[in-house]
Design a binder for these strands. Structure first.
Lengths: 346, 346
DNA sequence: TTTATTAGTGTGTTCGAGCACATTTTTAGT
DNA sequence: ACTAAAAATGTGCTCGAACACACTAATAAA
């Protein structure tokens, strides 16, 4: 019923040679209308699927893919990505694909540009980048486009004509998810939305989450809540936040839009009298510790590992199996508490 | 650096023919100690990985895998599994693998046994079964073992020597997750644990969830909660539950251990004065509708689709790539509310 | 010593797609 | 009608593992 047809089968059925069939299938070379008709007739009847194994066996081209992401030693948020990339490497090690990972300093646009230079010198067939810096990304994407290097992105979305795909999450909706959970813990009171980041270059990222968070409360028309936004940056997170706490003694909940919830939790930790609901992002070790202690109520899992894995594997499958690169893959927004966290850590 | 070596390379390096190398690699046939040493020496230095593509190209054996699960027309819970299986079929269509799906009536052990007979007649290389019936499963697994058919299981775990693997969830912990969410919605009051099932053959399944649920409250030593268990079966779900509601007018929360939360929700729906927290399982359409209406607070996603996909794909990869079949794969316990549900439905 | 037997080794073919090249057929030009 | 050019078609090799088979060398039996 679903016997597998080969080019040879088609050739026999159409009464031509496999060379001619090959020319029709790839519309290369010259084929007479007569032969074309005969072969098309056969192709319409049967369901020909080329054998990918045989195709890849002959294929001597080595595909080179470069991944560009922030140095996980600077920001451990990116650590799972390395595992995701490793997983893809292992899965496709049988094929002729080379995957190279390059790190840049997430606090320096210069480092970002420099690393891109290095990548271009490798003349890869495709790149997967975490486009932290908007303007700079558009710039280098233009370069990649000229060199006919396919660009895939992950983590945060950037609109650009030459960007083939994106893997990430709907940040606006993840803000809403956080809000819905907050609304479950609290029935009223003051809630702070805190942005903590070294570079604040992630601004768009965090703002989307804030928008979603606020929108939830606006839409539900729930009275009794007041939302306030606070931005904190590295050297003076503790001092500024402590001051904020004193100014707002009745604070009931905090939504941290980055993976730095542990910084807030560790400040709140000694203050036993305070009972503040905390919701943050990402299963970094310190966050999970506070989750297990009960100081952090929920974490939203951004699944960076899978983001990176899919970012790479869709590119590989594009080259090897001629699959399309999906325009956008939105990963589910996983809700994590102390009870189910262990299943998401790998 | 990590150049790919072929058998021919090894042969040249060891100064023998590829036939001899092949004999050493598969330890078949006779090889002189001299040749063996020379080849092993080379093998110790280089890192030989056989090219899976070439291997599978020649491989003419067609692997046959049969999947046995309840008829999704009788219980739509199983519908996503069909998609998961389809996904595996698509992914591996290039290889010579045949996957056949067989349905049984989940309310009839006889149907289960009959379908197994049919499968055995197909003489597959492996089967993936949803072992709903404990005793019967052990019986047929023995048969499969004698015929040297590999048995993999999903959905619910059954201990058996000849069962090679299991894909599913930790049900006890999923009960705990439900409890932790319930504890977040309610601070006190009476909570019912409701088991609804056509056959009640899933008893173990549901009991594990109940245990986990109760354990959470026991462990946390939270006063003010009282738990009560209720079993409901098909024809008289509504009448019995209505009676139960009247007997327990102060009921605050319900944990439904099966995918039938919608049955409870639809009874509660007209009773506008009642505010009862509902937590159930599975993203079946009716459940999601009630989730969006706000009648069901949380659903726990058992990810049947992925269970079935992994159940099949691990078997396929075992045959094609000689990978081990993982003994147990425990999928994450996804927490779903109205805000993130859409990302899990596919 | 000769022959039969076995141990040990090498050669050649297969799988299916892809492509270079050889060959045949058709068309155009003189 | 004959030749050169172009068009159309067919042939054959490659990729790497796997295995059948052919072959040589060594050993045992007659």
């Amino acid at each position: 019923m679903d016997k597998k047809y080969t080019i040879k089968d088609i050739a026999k059925m159409a009464g031509v040679s496999k060379g001619t069939v090959d020319r029709v299938l790839h519309n290369r070379g010259k084929v007479s209308p007569t032969a074309l008709d005969k072969i098309n007739e056969v192709l319409n009847v049967i369901d020909y699927e080329p054998n990918l194994i045989a195709r890849n066996l002959k294929n001597t081209k080595v595909y080179r893919i470069c991944v560009l992401l922030p140095d996980p030693e600077i920001d451990p948020y990116w650590l799972p990505c390395v595992n995701g990339i490793q997983e893809a490497i292992t899965e496709f090690k049988a094929y002729s694909v080379i995957i190279e990972t390059h790190y840049f300093n997430p606090e320096s646009t210069k480092s970002f540009m420099n690393t891109n230079e290095t990548i271009i010198k490798q003349s890869p067939d495709a790149v997967l980048i975490a486009p932290l810096f908007h303007k700079e990304t558009l710039e280098i994407v233009k370069q990649y486009d000229e060199l006919e290097i396919i660009v895939n992105t992950f983590n945060n979305q950037i609109e650009g004509e030459s960007i083939k795909g994106f893997v990430g999450q709907d940040l606006y909706k993840s803000g809403r998810v956080a809000a819905s959970l907050m609304n479950l813990i609290l029935s009223e009171g003051q809630i702070a939305i805190i942005h903590i980041d070294e570079s604040l270059k992630n601004a768009v990222h965090m703002q989307e989450k804030e928008k979603g968070f606020r929108n939830y409360f606006d839409e539900k028309k729930i009275a009794g809540f007041s939302l306030i936004t606070l931005k904190l940056k590295h050297p003076n997170v503790e001092s500024k936040f402590s001051a904020f706490l004193e100014e707002n003694p009745h604070l009931k909940g905090i939504f941290i839009t980055t993976s730095k919830a542990y910084q807030i939790a560790s400040i709140l930790s000694p203050l036993k009298n305070k009972k503040i609901a905390l919701i943050g992002y990402d299963l970094v070790e310190k966050n999970v510790n506070f989750l297990n202690q009960g100081l952090v109520h929920f974490l939203i899992h951004q699944n960076q590992k899978r983001q990176a894995y899919l970012g790479v594997s869709t590119l590989i499958e594009h080259f090897l199996f001629r699959k399309d690169i999906p325009e956008t893959i939105l990963l589910p927004i996983d809700i994590i508490n102390a009870e189910n966290a262990s299943f998401y850590i790998s």
